[in-house]
């Protein structure tokens, strides 16, 4: 057993547990995105950052990949952690503003401003689908390809895979494509927040309830009959 301090409380956990699991065990929630029970930790999204150590040596680590150490001092929502997390959220939001999952995390953390250009990508490269396909479905039909800017997920040679059984597991675990904001097609809208309320740019007060992050403003984009 290893004893560590999380937010000042002593926790004893098995050797090999991650900080994330230890924190969940004692009841401190840590937001995650690329982490999923049953899949190996990957540490891609950095949403689960926590601060470890003290004073000058304190540093930010991703809790989902960091194994507990004896006497470790962890802070799960110090000022520094929250700042870093909000930055991560802002960046995720810029790459996939349509993802309802990401929008919700953003509203939880009260992210109001968006300093980065929205890219409208449909993938944040969290690798959940890749791990799902390999570890749970034992297929290995999809994987990462290229690198840097061009990194993407797909089947080899972008053709129909021989090993894919069309189980749909990859789509099921995707945090971006499962719930998509369909903004300017209100008939298909899943939350409809923007359609039901006045435009946030006009009625600033409503913004608090809506937490919509689309840019250009969705309410303005909705075709009016």
């Amino acid at each position: 057993m290893i004893t560590l301090k999380i937010n000042g409380l002593d926790v004893s956990v098995e050797k090999g547990t991650t900080i994330l699991e230890a924190a969940e065990f004692i009841g401190f929630p840590i937001p995650t995105l690329c982490h999923m029970d049953g899949l190996t930790p990957y540490g891609a999204c950095r949403l689960c950052v926590v601060e470890i150590g003290e004073g000058k040596k304190a540093k930010l680590v991703s809790s989902c990949t960091y194994p507990v150490e004896e006497g470790l001092k962890v802070r799960t929502s110090s000022k520094r952690v929250v700042r870093a997390r909000r930055m991560v959220i802002e960046l995720l939001l810029a790459s996939c503003p349509q993802s309802k999952t990401i929008q919700d995390i953003a509203s939880t953390y009260g992210v109001r401003t968006q300093r980065f250009k929205q890219e409208y990508d449909d993938c944040i490269l969290c690798g959940r689908c890749v791990r799902m396909c390999e570890e749970q479905m034992m297929a290995k039909a999809i994987g990462f390809q290229n690198r840097g800017e061009k990194r993407s997920i797909g089947t080899p040679f972008d053709t129909k895979s021989d090993v894919c059984r069309l189980c749909g597991g990859c789509m099921y675990v995707c945090p971006v494509c499962e719930l998509r904001c369909t903004y300017n097609q209100p008939e298909k809208a899943i939350c409809g927040g923007c359609a039901n309320l006045f435009a946030p740019c006009v009625e600033k007060d409503n913004f608090d309830d809506m937490m919509c992050y689309m840019n250009p403003c969705v309410a303005c984009e909705i075709p009016k009959e």
């Binding site: 999809i142 994987g143 089947t155 080899p156 090993v163």
Partner: peptide, 12 residues
């Protein structure tokens, strides 16, 4: 080895 892994390395 799975084709995905090989393709990943080849494109990397």
């Amino acid at each position: 080895r799975s084709l995905v892994d090989i393709y990943g390395v080849a494109t990397f």
